[in-house]
Amino acid sequence: MLSSGIGVLFQGNNFLRLLQGLMVSLRIALLSMLLSAVFGLFLGIAMNSKKGWVRAVCRTYLETVRVMPQLVLLFLVYFGAAKHLGMNFSGELSAVIVFTFWGAAEMGDLVRSAFLSIPAHQYEAGCALGMTKMQVFFYIMIPQAVRRLLPPTINLLTRMIKTTSLVVLIGVVEVVKVGKQIIDASRFTEPSAAFWVYGAIFLLYFAVCYPFSRAAALLERKLRDGN
């Protein structure tokens, strides 16, 4: 009975459907990450602003996002916005909005600390060579900041991918939902389907996230040894 259950995965186009479901999750994660990176860059620069009130606003935003579970944020947008703005956000759109809102805050914090970690004399050294502020920023600060940013950004991406699993709870048809459908369809023919399908989804997530976290760890080590 058990060994027959694994067959469910390969019946018809079941496995392909699971992969398509995974693609939906990844699409949400990648799109949110892209938007987060763009907004986060500006936010990070604002977080190092000389103006106290700008820093305070950014800080409040970051802490607010951090204190709330992402699922609560999803509910706020999916159920709350639907009612108040009079428009029905699809689950997928809600997810992208929420993950970007969250990701931009986290990304901003990463950008902030990346710029902070560059020693001040690097900036001064650039100026001493007669470079303009802009030249110093683009040729000296940005390249160093990006090197430092890369590992934590990749880690944020894997967090983003893992968090997309939540969207099944606001009705998006992604990999977990497809899994449920497959299990329901084979409820009577293959009672052990749930074990194999959820096991497969578990491993699929691992297969997607593991290379990223490996890469981040390697880059981090390279950066540490290089300095």
Partner: peptide, 11 residues
Amino acid sequence: RNTPLLVQLFF
């Protein structure tokens, strides 16, 4: 570290 809690719980 590389799998979501939700999927762990479903399993």
